[in-house]
Design a binder for these strands. Structure first.
Length: 465
RNA sequence: GUGGUUGUAGCUCAGUAGGUUAGAGCACCAGAUUGUGAUUCUGGGGGUCGUGGGUUCGAGCCCCAUCUUCCACCCCA
């Protein structure tokens, strides 16, 4: 027999009963919100064809995809010279499947495969784990759950507005008070690049600007120059870092700077339209302010997002004053299904990171105690006679919809009581010879320590209340 | 993927320039209390010091490798 200590792979976790209960609380809030907005559930396989995934997330992303070794003799199709051609070439020979990296690409694949059955616009949500071969850190795991909501088959910016609404509703329901929904537009980024005379360079510009709050204006300036952006362009760019005033004022300032560029104008028009929808919806995200006085929804021209398939509005959500990266992100992609041979279907979607939300709620101690309750009443037994007497009562309690259990053996009272205590069971029902004689059972409230003698029907009535 | 960091009982950590049988608090188990948990008192179990090599008369402590943790970069939920 091996004495090897068991372990689980890096970046993965087990979830015990208490943790699962809390996670289910988050899943429940997200799921019911998605459904309230008309999204329908979808599930896809954990593994996809490797070719479906590669090339969708950029070179960086491709490296983070977990590949699955072909079953059987995975070397059967390879020749010695394949090894010489490098790992990229060899990978295709020995691996045809991979674990899904996100939920958006599998969704696009599903839409293309089922285009004839789907009624557009198609709104779906999906809550499943994804896998990334990333280096784990806090809030960063190799296996984690995403909760996606996407809609394809419409260009309407109402979808973007509703995404803001859903984010606001979910986080508010989870009792979060201080969070910022950042919004930007790829068109605005492209327009800025063009307006400062570096057309097409928005990629480099974004990567650098994204670090503004980390390395400061000087650091960004240095990086921009290193990336080959001209000094003149950088000078033109810098006023954009601290656009002042409310969101409308920011839009006006941007209009003046990049109104001449077609892409910039497209972005600004889209953003204005989103704001108009939100205003007409009476959005709480617009009317609610964070404790800092900042608005919840914020136009942020430094928001970039690396995923290469985004083309329109982009979102990112940050809970303020906690040590955690973004807990949600998304955007519009005009041509995701085009990669699978179905052009002209625009989609927009976003994703909640449950694992990060969990860590945030834990840090802020925002889990309600109700999310941890399981059994409502435990029947304590003394001997065989009391066990026999208790069984029909146990069934009666369960028939009444009360989560109940009978301690499965006549262990010492102390043991049975501390079982209830540790399992956080709020009531204990003591049934011994005295109680059997009188029919009046002892119901103990474990929080107050008070004990009442009641008939079973009164107990059921009290526990159901 | 690059650079760094961490790892001692179930948990949080001590462990002094390498020196005999590795400690504490909490948790756990048992008893005081044979019909009552969370409080009190008494006693008890539990660690080949992440793992594998190496240096040494001798390693928890030094060296190498590896796994894990966390951090920065990269990227992101």
């Amino acid at each position: 027999m091996s004495k090897e200590k068991p372990s689980i792979p890096k970046g993965t976790r087990d979830f015990g009963p208490a943790v699962v209960a809390k996670r289910n609380y988050i899943f429940g809030v997200i799921r019911s919100t998605f459904q309230k907005f008309g999204y329908l559930p979808l599930e896809t396989p954990a593994m996809e064809q490797l070719s479906v995934l590669t090339g969708k997330y950029g070179d960086e992303g491709d490296q983070l995809i977990f590949k699955i070794l072909n079953s059987g003799d995975f070397l059967s199709k390879t020749k010695p010279e394949d090894i010489d051609q490098g790992s990229k070439h060899l990978t295709r020979k020995i691996s045809e499947k991979a674990l899904r990296y996100d939920l958006t690409v599998p969704f696009a694949r599903y839409v293309v495969m089922n285009r004839n059955e789907i009624t557009f616009p198609f709104k779906r949500y999906q809550i499943q784990p994804v896998w990334r071969a990333d280096r784990p850190q806090k809030g960063r795991y190799r296996e984690f759950y995403q909760c996606d909501a996407d809609v394809v088959g419409t260009n309407s910016l109402l979808c973007e507005a509703e995404i803001v609404q859903m984010i606001d509703e979910v986080l508010t329901t989870l009792e979060l008070k201080d969070f910022t929904i950042k919004i930007n537009h790829r068109g605005v980024l492209a327009g800025i690049a063009e307006a400062i005379g570096e057309k097409g360079r928005e990629g480099d510009i974004c990567v650098a600007i994204d670090k503004l709050d980390k390395v400061g204006q000087e650091g960004v300036r240095k990086e921009l120059l290193e990336r080959g952006i001209s000094e003149e362009a950088v000078n033109k760019l810098e006023p954009l870092y601290d656009l002042t005033g409310d969101n409308e004022h920011k839009l006006e300032q941007l209009q003046a700077i990049l109104g001449e560029t077609a892409e910039g104008q497209r972005g600004l028009n889209d953003l204005r339209q989103v704001w108009q929808y939100l205003t007409q919806l009476g959005s709480y995200a617009l009317s609610t302010q964070n404790p800092s006085g900042e608005p919840r929804l914020m136009l942020d021209v430094t928001l970039a997002r690396g995923l290469s398939y985004y083309t329109g509005c982009i979102f990112e959500v940050k809970v303020n004053n906690v040590s955690m990266g973004s807990i949600s992100g998304g955007g519009r992609y005009d041509n995701l299904t085009g990669m699978f041979g179905l052009p002209g279907v625009s989609g927009v979607g976003f994703s909640f990171g449950v694992d990060r939300i969990y860590d945030v709620l834990e840090e802020l101690e925002l889990f309600p105690s109700s999310s941890q309750l399981s059994t409502k009443v435990l029947i304590v037994q003394f001997d065989k006679e009391s066990e026999v007497y208790s069984l029909p009562l146990l069934q009666k309690l369960r028939d009444a919809g009360i989560a109940s259990e009978l301690y499965p053996e006549a262990a010492k009272l102390k043991k049975q009581m501390s079982y209830a205590d540790q399992k956080n069971i709020p009531f204990v029902l003591l049934i011994g010879s005295e109680e059997i004689k009188s029919g009046k059972l002892k119901l103990r409230d474990m929080q107050t320590g008070e004990q009442d003698e009641l008939y079973i029907d009164d107990i059921i009535a009290q526990l159901k209340a």
